[in-house]
Design a protein around this nucleic acid. Structure first.
Lengths: 133, 133
DNA sequence: GTTATTGCAAATTATTTGCATATAA
DNA sequence: TTATATGCAAATAATTTGCAATAAC
């Protein structure tokens, strides 16, 4: 990600370094406020505005993905995993990842049938833990 | 939709009647501001607050669906069509509908594989008109 | 030494809500 | 009549931005 920042022609500040470390360590899908809290633990001078600004740069460079799930703030993840979609536990808000090549193919096919080419898509499954009732 | 309002135990006011007519006539997927503008043409006393409040009631009753597509206000449509997903033209913002039983099946299968049952999902294809280059 | 970047606070945008008044049933 | 709805304006919530001070290169 440092390389991405240099590639974007921006400076690697202390605050940005803290955010990069936080993003790299994140196993979940935190929102800006959560990232801010975590970055502050490393460097108390990091402001929320800088978190948003840096996330913007990283997103533009394609090394971070922003997801706006239902009813809430945008959540972020590093783009180090291959493409995947998300399954959200509606009770806990926990996010899991999955991918289906079959669904990807079908999406491209549907777009083509409408005379379009797929730029990107969003697939989210809102689920509840299966009850063994 | 009038029945839905009565079912919700709320009153059928002049303002709500105007909004219902606008919703029934909408062929597109307008946002609250656009619905407000259209309802005003029928009854200038309709306020944006009432549009939001009534949309809330209608959504709770399940006769109107709210969609939050990328980067913009929520858009609404009557729930008179069978379930479908959306294809959005990234150039124009135009929304088209489609459905794929195969994708629906695969989604349920994926949820099940994770030990979850699907509550609902969101599938949006952001596309660009195919260039005959 | 420049010029990008920062924190802060104020601005934005979409939506919601409190309250006194109006109105549907 | 009488409780529900209304419009308006102020309140939220997430995010963005202007600006003077600060720090990266």
């Amino acid at each position: 990600m440092e390389a991405a920042l240099r590639g974007a022609g921006v400076r690697l500040t202390r605050q940005r370094a803290a955010l990069l470390r936080v993003l790299a360590a994140a196993e979940d899908h935190p929102d800006a406020g959560e990232l801010h809290a975590r970055a502050r633990a490393l460097d108390p001078t990091v402001s929320l505005a800088t978190v948003y600004r840096t996330l913007g740069v990283l997103e533009a460079e394609g090394v971070v993905h922003r997801h706006v799930f239902e009813g809430g703030a945008a959540r972020f993840e590093t783009a180090d995993m291959p493409h995947h979609d998300h399954l959200i536990d509606v009770e806990t808000g926990q996010v899991m990842e999955f991918r289906s090549d079959r669904i990807e193919e079908l999406q491209a096919k549907i777009a083509a049938e409408h005379g379009y080419e797929l730029v990107h898509h969003r697939l989210e499954l809102y689920c509840r833990k299966k009850t063994t009732a």
